[in-house]
Design a protein around this nucleic acid. Structure first.
Length: 772
RNA sequence: UGGGGAGUCAUCCAAUGGCAGGAUAACCGGCUUUGAAUCGGUUUAUGGAGGUUCGAAUCCUCUCUCCCCAACCA
């Protein structure tokens, strides 16, 4: 159904497996049980559980229940149920962070003993104040250098419950001046005399996320700990905790972009608000983006999983078009939902020529031929039917392909009828249309010589069942309801409409397994509501409407108010510019006269100001430049290499040792003997393995195809293998030249010189073209 | 003393120095007893400016925009 996705996370895993860093993949999904799962969580679940499935590893569902104030058993149950429903295996059941509280406590004591953590009694306002700001370093707590013994004593008293909430905390002793705010002596434990759902009253202290989470991962042998982008800053602390925990596990955190969906709110806090203020009927209201809501609305797990495949995984902060979800849902339901008929806004259709009291049974398939599924039901037909009010127009507009006075239309699966008469109520509303019918039109045939304008659905008023049908529209009117001041302002007042519908009789007697979901033909996919529907009082939810190019063509430009970019957060607005690399180089020169001397000298040697700036920003650059020049290279060649071609040391392994002594030989060969890309390759090799540049250059030269005659057959083969592309190229698509170069290079295993390849290709591509 | 991330069709995701590709959306057409499905076709993108290279979305420099971090939340 779907191809195996590939993304940066899978790349990392593949590399870890290939290098032997890990032999299996263990992931985890760690929700806090403080709300129902929504589609955003589903993305994370599909990722972490999907990875476990794909790599035959394991994924733990672990509840991060470290804050007793907000958490509840109801949420634990619903989350576990939702994940199962999505189709993932919970193994031996969910795990709980609270099960590790003892171990976490021991590790905290160990940290205290090692002088890496201390008990602090600053109030929360003071703590914030002491933390400093984004621009300024923080201040150290007066308790920071307290002895381990004293800290241990205090911490044990915290644990014993001797102190009130908020009086003390345990903090890691890291660095109050760290540029990463998360590293400024983060809190590890706080005092909370709260009842915990699982541990009861045994703990008056609870670990903080940043302390607990890495320990949980390490304890469970998690290899790849995936979380959302906002935790990027926490990674440094995560690694600190893992490294100092003494635990053997070596989990690594990788962040990906959380899901944002248009017209949808994904904040648990805001969803809770909708529930608590009764703006929706509950967490499972079909308009909610929760798994429970979507399930009740009729989405199948398959559709949600498919959607998650469709949107991919990346680090881009993006908002997915809600249409993509709707597509996944329709596409899924199309092949599984039996077709039936239902009339949402009934008006009467009376067939004047059809005998009163007569009733016939028409068999109709549940699926159209292209679905290729068996099954059928019987439709009853009589002279009194209901049709959709919107399927009749007294004065049809252009393009209207439904019933109108004098027009023939087909009643789906049944006869063709012609409208002869329209009956209205006092208000002028059409309540009934009277039609004649063609008794010979039941099967394939239409009325002889008459145009049939279209096909409409109907139900037999004598057998049809009354049902309430609920149509859902998006909960919010604006694409980014969360962006403004109050998201409730964006609530769509028309997100729910109810219809007194008539549905065909077969729905009441259908087998249980066909009964779940239907397509009401020409309208959409529907599901019987699992809460409110009762025999005799049916209730259907519309899962999603069918694509409708008619409605779309009518609704000319919905002219939605253009989205206004929201003002950036006040914090972002006051954020000062940080120093650029250029600033840093400049200030380095200011403090080092040797550098500023170089800056001037390089320019006088003919380098541009920009190049001179780059090469005089730190002493090692100039050192290299001068080594090259001393070896006989011109300033400009040496500068070019250093700036543009020399591999960055960040890209190289730790053991990188700058092979400065090999510079001259390498660079001397650059123009005449090897290409810059080869030189770069050699450079990397030298950095890793040492050896001599000259030897490597010689090896390349010895191996090189350097005459056109031996290249020609390769080129000829590429050309005959890609004759279509040759034609396109000769037709003028010159972008393909790069393709040919690449193909030849690959075929020659990189042994051909690019210049030669280019020459030969150019000659052969054009020559033959002329010959033909 | 600030730091950490991200910029590719309208939207989401690819392209790991070598044909800018897929999906959704849109548009046109075929088929149709669902204005659905399906089939065929079309439109649309590398934030900007320089540089290196035979060849740059990819490497280098500068620049612009957006997101995250200063909860005893996770």
């Amino acid at each position: 159904m779907t191809t195996t996705p590939s993304d940066f996370i899978r790349d990392i895993i593949d590399a870890d497996l290939a290098s032997g860093k890990h032999s299996q993949v263990v992931t985890r999904f760690p929700p806090e049980p403080n709300g129902y799962m929504h589609i955003g969580h589903a993305k994370a679940v599909c990722l972490s559980f999907g990875l476990a499935l794909q790599y035959k590893g394991r994924c733990n569902l672990r509840f991060d229940d470290t804050n007793p104030a907000k958490e509840d058993q109801e949420y634990v149950d619903s989350i576990a149920a939702d994940i199962k429903w999505l189709g993932f295996d919970l193994g031996e059941g969910p795990l709980f962070a609270s099960d590790y509280f003892d171990t976490m406590y021991e590790i905290a004591e160990k940290l205290i003993g090692e002088g890496k953590a201390y008990v602090c009694d600053l109030s929360d306002e003071q703590t914030r104040e002491y933390r400093g700001s984004l621009q300024e370093a923080g201040k150290e707590s007066p308790r920071r250098n307290q002895s381990p013994a004293e800290n241990l004593d205090l911490f044990r008293k915290m644990r014993a419950g001797d102190f009130p909430d908020g009086s003390y905390v345990l903090r890691a002793k890291i660095d109050m001046a760290a540029s990463n705010m998360k590293m400024r002596d983060p809190l590890l434990y706080r005092i909370r005399h709260d009842h915990h759902d699982r541990t009861g009253d045994t703990w008056p202290i609870y670990p903080m996320y940043d302390f607990a989470h890495p320990l949980e991962d390490a304890l469970e042998g998690i290899t790849h700990s995936l979380c959302t982008l906002e935790f990027e800053n926490n990674r440094e602390l995560y690694n600190w905790i893992v490294a100092n925990s003494g635990l053997p596990g070596k989990p690594e955190q990788t962040e990906f972009a959380r899901l944002a969906l248009g017209y949808t709110i994904m904040s648990k806090r805001k969803l809770l608000q909708l529930v608590e203020q009764n703006l929706v009927s509950g967490w499972d209201d079909p308009r909610m983006p929760t798994i429970a809501g979507m399930r009740r609305r009729g989405y199948r797990a398959e559709a949600i999983v498919r959607f998650c495949d469709l949107i991919g995984v990346s680090k881009n902060n993006s908002t997915v078009d809600i249409g993509k979800l709707e597509y996944a849902v329709r596409d899924d339901l199309n092949s599984v939902a039996p077709r039936v008929m239902a009339v949402l806004e009934p008006i009467k259709l009376t067939i004047t020529g059809y005998p009163e009291g007569k009733s016939e049974s028409i068999s109709a398939p549940y699926f159209p031929p292209d679905i290729g599924k068996p099954g059928e039901r019987d439709l009853s037909f009589s002279n009194n039917l209901y049709i959709e009010a919107s399927d009749f127009a007294e004065t049809p507009t252009k393009g209207f392909r439904r019933l109108a006075p004098g027009r023939w239309i087909r009643l789906r699966h049944a006869y063709c009828v012609r409208c002869d008469e329209v009956i209205k109520d006092e208000a002028g509303k059409v309540v009934e249309v009277r039609c004649s019918y063609d008794p010979n039109s039941l099967g394939e045939n239409g009325p002889a010589g008459e145009k049939v304008w279209g096909v409409i659905h109907w139900v037999d008023s004598k057998t049809s069942l009354a049902a309430e049908v609920r149509i859902y529209d998006r909960l919010f009117k604006s694409e980014r309801p969360g962006a403004g001041d109050d998201f409730l302002d964006h609530l769509n007042p028309d997100s729910l409409s109810r219809y007194s519908a008539q549905v065909e009789a077969s729905i009441g007697t259908a087998e249980a397994d066909t009964k779940i979901r239907y397509q009401f033909e020409r309208q959409g996919y529907f599901i019987e509501d699992n809460v409110d529907s009762k025999p005799g009082a049916l209730v259907f939810n519309r899962t999603i409407g069918l694509r409708d190019s008619w409605v779309k063509s009518k609704t000319v430009t919905t002219s939605e108010a253009p989205e206004i970019k929201t003002a950036q957060s006040s914090r972002a607005a006051t954020r000062p510019k940080s120093r650029t690399k250029a600033d840093i180089r400049q200030s380095a020169r200011k403090h080092d006269s040797a550098l500023s001397e170089r800056f001037a000298r390089y320019q006088s040697e003919g380098l541009s100001e920009g190049d001179s700036d780059l090469l005089s920003g730190a002493s090692e650059w100039g050192d290299r430049l001068e080594a090259l020049v001393a070896a006989g290279l011109s300033f400009s060649d040496a500068a070019k290499w250093l700036i543009n071609e020399q591999p960055r040391e960040d890209d190289l392994p730790i053991e990188f040792a700058s092979p400065v002594s090999e510079f001259p030989a390498l660079l001397a060969a650059l123009e005449s003997r090897i290409s810059s890309s080869k030189a770069r390759k050699i450079w990397k090799e030298l950095a890793q393995k040492k050896g001599s540049a000259e030897a490597l250059i010689k090896a390349i030269e010895a191996d090189r195809i350097d005459d056109g005659d031996s290249l020609a057959p390769i080129v000829a083969k590429i050309m005959s293998d890609n004759s279509d592309k040759v034609t396109t190229y000769r037709g003028g698509k010159e972008a393909l030249f790069g393709f040919f170069v690449g193909q030849v290079m690959r075929a020659a295993k990189g042994k051909a010189s690019a210049k030669l390849v280019k020459d030969v290709l150019l000659r052969m591509l054009n020559e033959k073209g002329d010959a033909q």
